[in-house]
Computed example of a mutant assay.
Amino acid sequence: MTINEKQDSIVEEFSIFDDWMDRYQQLIEYGKELPPIAEQKKTQQYLIQGCQSKVWLDAELRDGKIYFTADSDAIITKGIVSLLIKVLSGHTPDEILNTELYFIDKIGLKENLSPTRSNGLVAMIKQMKAYALAFKAKNDGNS
């Protein structure tokens, strides 16, 4: 599945909810499905700066694709990072760097977040793209 197909699937899932309380509930459900980050990675090194709540994010490159793990101490934030992982995990650094994450606006996520959560969302995306950039640079250096 391409990144855009994953985004379209999320947009479709969220379109059945008229009410933002239902969408928040869906976000919480996504958070529960989040593959857990290793406990030893819940350190300052993996903490995303710019998030009001604590969000730890890690990434590893396997067979040319990046796989993310994360956790958060806030249930809505955990749901948000879970959505980002659902969309971006399992793709190449180039795919991640060249993608536009349009699903965030399409499901109305950005406009329904508090400014601090919205800044956190931007920080999470920035960190995921930074991992992609680092893996790409490392790969380009090896070829």
Rank of each mutant, 00 (worst) to 15 (best):
T69Q: 12
H91K: 10
K42A: 04
K78C: 06
D22F: 04
C51I: 05
A74Q: 00
S72K: 08
S82D: 01
D63K: 14
I66N: 06
D22W: 00
K110T: 14
I66K: 05
W56P: 00
I75N: 10
F68P: 04
R23V: 12
G108Y: 09
S53F: 07
Y67T: 05
V81L: 02
F68V: 05
F103S: 01
G108T: 07
Q40E: 15
Y67E: 06
K54C: 07
Q44I: 11
G90I: 11
E33P: 03
R62D: 09
R23A: 10
R62Q: 13
G31V: 00
K106G: 13
A70E: 06
Q52C: 01
I48K: 01
I75C: 09
G50F: 05
G64L: 02
E39D: 15
Y24R: 13
L97C: 04
P36L: 14
F68I: 02
G90P: 12
I28V: 15
Y46E: 07
P93N: 08
E39Y: 07
I75E: 10
Q52Y: 02
P93M: 04
I37Y: 00
I48W: 07
D58I: 00
I75R: 11
K42Q: 12
S72P: 07
G31A: 00
S72H: 09
A59I: 05
R62C: 06
G64A: 09
I28G: 04
